[in-house]
Design a protein around this nucleic acid. Structure first.
Lengths: 196, 196, 196, 196
DNA sequence: TATGAATGAGTGTTCATTCAT
DNA sequence: TATGAATGAACACTCATTCAT
């Protein structure tokens, strides 16, 4: 049916329905019938577009990783040129409102847990981890020796993820201001005074 | 031959097998056949002793919560009488080696994610949260006004859980010394100088 | 349910139901629900006993191969000691009434066609082919040089299978007497006069 | 642009793709997507031209029956006028190279098996059987009394099909010369000496 | 004429649960 | 007390078919 250009629309619908379903009923109850139903489509179409449920979950996880990446990239692009500005932009991107709302965090934690026993999801997770760290290390290297920069990047990455997860555990609203403040302090502790 | 006293032994076997299974293959693949197999028992017995899979998972979660509780209680009992000693004992108990090894943390995170969409597990989770907080508040109240004590307890509880989860994310060994140090600092920040 | 000794009975029931189903509705419509229904059992039990549909079909094909083997072995054991007697017994076994009734032949032809595109079934088919031929060659070698024996065995095997299939195509009753007569003539043509 | 004359071309493409698919992957895996893909067309078109998959399979079987019919008719037309020449021509047509190559035989056997449980295909099969036999009987009647002619036709038809199937079972090259020789002998056995 | 998006019935399989022993 | 045979609902997936364009 020459309703051309449907594929990207359908994929989008299905990925959104997947994230919504995981948020609301959890991964264990996220059957393809449930997901397709929320998307207003039939179950069969999931295999048609994503090759199967695994493909859809994979695409859904990629989606939230990409949203995070985009949120960070935007802020970094808009930031000033100093390493400190760039690093603060990375922090801000990670605490973007698209990332720290309750629904997103529930989905994140779900994928996190799932990735512990699913090779494909773990790969995505690790790629994301590495990207955050190398991104941080890139800017630290401008003002710190290589080994110091690595250490600082590792520490800040852990702090960001830690604050992040601490937020998802709290259940209530994520206190962005406070998380940002904590991360900023951590950052300044590693930056040479001259770079402040 | 009735084999008196079998029930507690069987329950123990099955709960251990459940935790081991969740650690190794994940909750999604933790079928009762798999669990019973690891326990060296038949699948049917799970319904016999726990009323069903849900009952077993519930019991397994209670088990790890109780282990945490015991680890804390022991330390508190052995600690000095000052609020600071007691509060440090609570922190130490939470970072006990039975709690921060990779397997235990994997299971914890799994239950954490599951409790987001399972009413029974959520209840256990919340009860545990409240217990930690009221425990902390109890000792804070000895040296702080009620409202201050509440706030301090809430903050320290979040810090403990946060450090804890940050550790499970890191994947490697949990740095107990550092986590304890961070929590101690947080604690001293809230305690009046006179209580140090 | 300690109704001990059920497995072999169930397997038997299911294999019989499979052959009956293939005979009556064909392989394409031989769903596990249909088969299990004819056996008076639930569909799930097939995976339980045979690991899946493939396993059951495999077992069913093995069954008819084994029945053929047994029919031949019995006749050979009861036959006189001369190569001619043994070879005639092999022929007779292949045209045993358990093998040449319409239902059996329909199932045979079905498996034959299926084995053209199914690796597992083809393996069974070939193993059976080789067994028939080596069985024939064994007796031919007593009165013929090796290479001659091979050729004779190859020829007689083809003749047996050919008559057999010709029968299944005819649709009506298999004319055992005529098939046997034809095969005997073929046999005598290869045997040295002294061996008649 | 209506592209006049497309229908017959499309039908041809699809029938060929069907036979090719059945040869290579078997009837069970001959999905319409697979067939349409081999034809370089979309899946929907099959229902358009053949009303559905059944219609296509029907047409494909008709095709191979017609190819056989044509091969026979050609030879009969070119043959001498004696019954013996005509009958030999019918035999030759059945062992035409278009009929006895491995691919054609695999498809034949597949349809054969399928026709055992599919009313439509069985009808085609029987019509073909009857045509062969009445064709043979027609020429036998010139030199034999009616009842004798029927019997001879039935025998020769069975022999032809039998040799044919025996060939498809052998797996290797079909020995046309030998099959023809066997059928000729059978034929001469029934023909009155004067008709040789 | 031909497409390809979409459906939904049907399939094999898994698995928690039941129950006779 | 404990088994393991058996069930049946739920699942992901396949595929012939339909239909708007």
């Amino acid at each position: 049916m020459p309703k051309l250009g449907m594929p990207p629309i359908r994929r989008e619908q299905l990925i959104r329905a997947t994230l919504e379903t995981i948020d609301q009923v959890g991964l264990a109850d996220a059957t393809i019938a449930e997901i397709a139903g929320r998307a207003g489509l039939s179950a069969g179409i999931i295999s048609h577009y994503f090759g199967g449920k695994d493909g859809l979950l994979n695409a859904a996880m990629r989606r939230i990783l990409r949203q995070l990446h985009d949120a960070v990239a935007e802020r970094v692009a808009a930031a000033g040129e100093s390493p400190r500005d760039k690093l603060r932009a990375i922090i801000d991107g990670n605490f973007d409102s698209t990332q720290v709302n309750p629904a997103a965090m529930r989905v994140w934690l779900t994928f996190w847990a799932a990735s512990m026993h699913d090779a494909q999801l773990r790969r995505l997770q690790h790629a994301n981890d590495r990207r955050l760290q190398s991104n941080l290390a890139h800017y630290f290297r401008r003002v710190l020796p290589a080994s110091e920069a690595q250490k600082a990047a590792r520490g800040l990455a852990a702090m960001i993820d830690g604050l992040w997860l601490r937020g998802s555990l709290a259940g209530g609203e994520f206190d962005v201001a406070r998380a940002r403040h904590t991360a900023y302090e951590y950052l300044d502790h590693y930056l040479p005074k001259s770079a402040h």
